[in-house]
Design a protein around this nucleic acid. Structure first.
Lengths: 283, 283
DNA sequence: ATATTTTTAGAAAATATTTTTCAAAAAGAA
DNA sequence: TTCTTTTTGAAAAATATTTTCTAAAAATAT
């Protein structure tokens, strides 16, 4: 794995895991610092699985064996988490407190996204965008809003971006794409059928595909040329979290800034034009 | 040992060590992060001593055995020391640097939003939402996406929320609202003509109005019962900045969480129903 | 629905590692 | 020197890890 935090990698690969592996992942996530001092058998017992399964789990996440797993794990634990005594869980009853909790959640998700981001992938993505004849942003549900946001943003500096709202039309559009076209598929889970379908069609049509998703390995990533992973402070189960959406926006913004930087002159020109177009809509 | 840094403890005990133990201590001090991935035999070989001596060394410094020694060692190594290769000093306009700048911008905008938020206003807004017969989220451009996002989010727990995309339809809808209805108008600038128009109509119709905007005083706030202000760090490339959008999402999330909290039973029930409705859309 | 294939998980065997024991070597004291 | 104590490594014993193999479960095709 690329990331230097093993615990994070485990989250990323989570939906690739089998039931048994998930049990282990859950226990490890919950008791990371305890696991450091457990043998493979201890851990297996704690999870009610066989030693062999724990070993397999280690291999699944890319380690050579249990020992390497433990060492990598220990390195991904920050000194704070090391302390045994549990931090007194603050009551999130009060409204101000709740605001702070939510805020901190966002920040950690954004930082996670930053950490997970593969600079090379960003670089390549922007190059593909520059080379592309047409760029499409696709998504469903909340991710569709991100897709529309991306289109809105890029529309300020280039008119080769599109966003199609209706899933059927997305598929039709994808079927007509060619190797000159670039398709972004935004999907938090990477498992939404409609998205996968569009990805499949687009791939058949020969278009380039970039996925923006939480999970490095998901049905979606089978069809992507590049995958940009976004963080979120939650497991794969919960949907519609704001932090996931913010992470998507962050990635889009990065692509935008880099695209702008590389095409300053044209971008600035277009930006002025589009700004003027809406000025008279303001008081 | 009392100290939390094993490497330090080893230094402290150094004089008490035997010749062989000193050899081991020297090697460990010099190659701490390499040792993490060595077996007791590897380490013994590297120091030209017997396995048993390494084990004795571990006992001497107060560990139960070699494994515990390695774990304690790993915990006393800071993540920085972990990296083998030297980090090449990045030029200021490099891509990684840009990512960090953008990220910090978001964080400061979100914190600003947190600071600006009036707890009372949030409290009152949620109360109004509970009391309302219908809730509408209106916006234009990027703020329309936020409005749709809000509708999507609340739709998981209540079906009295609406979002109308077309500005003309928004106006028509507003004209039919009554004092039982609550209208959210999301507008970064608070100066968008279409938004103001809708606000004016809604106010005439007698509906309650909550504004989500950057500016406490703007044409919009003339018509609002409550104004929720969001922060944003205006960068050079302005117009539809992401941090503004994130701040809007933050405010929406807060309203959602508080609404959910006050109506737990119903919310949870509805949430389950709506979640089930989309489950089969996933692989 | 049934059969076939593939995947998954645990038991047991095979390896490897760690720990203990013990005797020899080295260092120090009489 | 000679005896005692300490230190060390080799080998044995105890543990732990990894691999292999089989049965069960799940997925897929018929």
């Amino acid at each position: 794995m690329s990331s230097y935090s093993l615990l994070l990698d485990i989250q990323l690969l989570y939906n690739q895991f089998t039931k048994t592996e998930k049990k282990i992942a859950d226990y490890v996530a919950e008791n990371a610092n305890r696991v450091l001092f457990m043998s493979i058998t201890d851990l297996a017992d704690a999870c009610n699985v066989a030693d062999a399964s724990v070993h397999r789990f280690c291999r699944t996440i890319g380690m050579k064996g249990y020992q390497e797993f433990k060492m990598k794990l220990s390195l991904s634990i920050t000194p704070d988490e090391t302390q045994e005594g549990e931090a007194p869980k603050e009551e999130s009853d009060s409204l101000p407190n709740m605001l702070d909790c939510i805020l901190e959640g966002y920040i950690s998700a954004l930082r996670e996204t930053r950490m997970l981001l593969d600079i090379d992938a960003v670089d390549k993505t922007v190059s593909m965008m520059e080379a592309a004849g047409n760029i499409y942003f696709f998504g469903i549900g909340d991710s569709l809003l991100a897709a529309q946001g991306a289109r809105n943003k890029f529309l300020k500096i280039t008119n080769k971006v599109n966003c199609i709202v209706d899933p059927h039309m997305q598929a039709m559009s994808a079927s007509m794409a060619d190797s000159n076209d670039l398709i972004f598929i935004i999907s938090y889970s990477g498992s939404t059928k409609d998205n996968i379908y569009v990805a499949k069609i687009a791939r058949q049509a020969g278009a380039k595909i970039v996925g923006i998703t939480r999970f490095l390995k998901s049905p979606l990533t089978n069809y992507t040329d590049i995958t940009l992973t976004c963080g979120a402070n939650e497991g794969p189960l919960e949907g519609g979290s704001m932090s996931a959406k913010m992470s998507q926006l962050y990635i889009i913004d990065i692509l935008f800034q880099e695209y702008y930087r590389r095409n300053q002159t044209v971008s600035r020109e277009n930006n002025e034009k589009t700004s003027k177009a809406v000025v008279e809509k303001l008081y």
